[in-house]
């Protein structure tokens, strides 16, 4: 009885570990997009390992956490917002910020 319960628990832990870790390293990298508000500006989206990343605008780097969900990439902001970016194709992330426009991030490296 106990053993079966423990096995179940173990499997669950494994699952959650996989869940949190299995992000896919192929999305990591530096992406750039042009600020639709302000054509001159470039927004840099840096996706690093372990789900960490940053959104840099006009020199200000905002830390974010990212995770991959099938064809979407979810960007989590500390304030409590989560933005879903679409993975159109490899090296291209399409992020729509409501009221701010669409950001097309192209992978730079």
């Amino acid at each position: 009885m106990l053993r079966s319960a423990l096995i179940i628990l173990f499997m669950l832990l494994l699952g959650s570990a996989a869940y949190s870790c299995g992000q896919g390293p192929d999305l990591q990298g530096r992406y750039e997009a042009v600020n639709p508000q302000h054509q001159g500006n470039v927004v840099v989206l840096a996706l690093r390992s372990a789900g960490k990343g940053s959104w840099t605008i006009e020199g200000e780097e905002v830390p974010i956490r990212w995770e991959r969900r099938n064809q979407e990439i979810w960007l989590h902001h500390k304030g409590g917002a989560v933005i879903a970016g679409k993975l159109v194709e490899a090296g291209r992330i399409d992020v729509e910020l409501p009221g701010l426009g669409r950001f097309l991030f192209l992978r730079k490296q």
Binding site: H38, I57, E58, H77, G79, A81, L97, L100
Partner: peptide, 13 residues
């Protein structure tokens, strides 16, 4: 400027 996206939106808007 949504409170949840403040840091991102502030700079931009």
């Amino acid at each position: 400027v949504p409170a949840t996206l403040f840091e991102i939106v502030f700079k931009m808007k």
